[in-house]
């Protein structure tokens, strides 16, 4: 079914490619299958409708690149997908343009955390509790279970950084997702998160690359791990794995944001792309084909139940989760990562 939809889109795009090209725009995503899906689901239809040729580039999300481009006066990107905390930092520094008015007017239709004066979500993803259902028939149901090494013996995989990990520690300590940042904004709350992490520290295998984390789970090196939901969907659908996701344990969802780079060479075409993507039927082109959602709430009505089932931000899932607070991390990332690394190596 997915394939037929793909072929249909390709045929549509092919039929329209005869349209007269009107300018070009350079759009920069995260590469790999992410770019492949964006091309089929979004940028090809954009070219078909507007005649603007799209160069779909990829990058590693390094804000330093945008700053360097701007300082040297040679900006080569138009629209980039950038992580929300980096959008926050870059927007305040003037590295990104404010959204076009037509897009900004839609703010109320967006899920919390997916709209920013400088950008709208290009994708929403979540860090979820994952276990190998082939090995654990009765898997963990909560982050407290994740911490419970007597009930579930074995090592745990955890992302080796403060961001996304302190949140999970507070979930395990019984803080509801919506309350986590209120707690983390106090010094006692940060101490509480680190105290909770102390409990599990001897049983943790830290990861930095999702490939090694999945490899650890596959090899039984860890019995459960935190992981990006899209990666797990991919493993289950393409590599025949049977990994379980404990959505009900609670999770945080993050967003990457489409943003127009300041002084972009094709700023008008970039704005046209943002306006195109802001329409729900165009935005749906991405989550139809992938395990990541988008920001506009109306998009989810356009998806089938199976498509919705993969997404952290679908109506049935979002109640278990809360958005990562990019403003919190924009101002606390340095000091908390510093403390986390010190704690980690003790």
């Amino acid at each position: 079914m997915r394939l037929s939809r793909l072929l249909c889109t390709i045929a549509l795009a092919g039929a329209a490619s005869g349209a007269q090209a009107e300018g070009t725009v350079t759009i920069v995503g995260w590469g790999g299958s992410w770019n492949d899906v964006y091309k089929i689901g979004v940028t090809d239809p954009f070219t078909a409708q507007t005649g603007t040729a799209v160069t779909l580039d990829e990058w590693d999300g390094s804000l330093a690149k945008i700053r360097a481009m701007n300082e040297s006066g040679s900006v080569s990107y138009d629209v980039v997908s950038v992580e929300a905390p980096q959008l926050d930092i870059g927007c305040d520094e003037g590295l990104f343009e404010k959204l076009p008015e037509a897009v900004a007017a839609e703010a109320d239709n967006y899920l919390p955390g997916t709209f920013h004066p400088c950008g709208i979500a290009s994708d929403t993803w979540a860090t979820v509790l994952v276990y190998d259902a082939a090995k654990l028939a009765d898997g963990p149901k909560s982050w407290a279970d994740f911490w419970d090494v007597e009930k579930f013996p074995g090592k745990r995989g955890m992302l080796g950084q403060a961001m996304y990990t302190l949140e999970n520690a507070l979930l395990a300590d019984g803080v509801p997702p919506a309350e986590v940042y209120n707690v983390l904004r106090t010094p006692e709350g940060v101490d509480r998160a680190f105290a909770k992490l102390d409990e599990i520290k001897p049983n943790v295998v830290w990861w930095t690359s999702s490939s090694t984390a999945v490899q650890n789970l596959d090899a039984g090196e860890v019995v459960m791990t935190d992981m990006y939901n899209g990666r797990i969907t991919f493993e289950n659908e393409n590599n025949g794995k049977n990994y379980g996701i404990a959505w009900e344990a609670g999770f945080f969802y993050g967003t990457d944001m489409w943003a127009l780079v300041a002084n972009a060479p094709n700023a008008d075409a970039g704005r046209a792309f943002l306006e195109f993507f802001a329409l729900p039927e165009n935005q749906a082109g991405f989550p139809r084909l992938y395990g990541y959602g988008t920001g506009d709430k109306r998009v989810y009505d356009l998806l089938t139940p199976e498509q919705r089932d993969r997404l952290p931000t679908s109506p049935s899932r979002i109640g278990f989760g809360a958005p990562y607070d990019s403003a919190f991390w924009a101002e606390n990332q340095e000091s908390l990562e510093q403390r986390f690394k010190t704690w980690q190596s003790q």
Binding site: G61, L63, A64, R67, I89
Partner: peptide, 24 residues
């Protein structure tokens, strides 16, 4: 970062963090 433990991260990874992520 890939194969070391948490106590084995080297100086350059912090340079990358401050350059790329926090623009410090």
């Amino acid at each position: 970062t890939l194969i070391g433990g948490p106590g084995d991260q080297m100086l350059s990874s912090f340079i990358v963090f401050y350059t790329d992520k926090t623009l410090n």
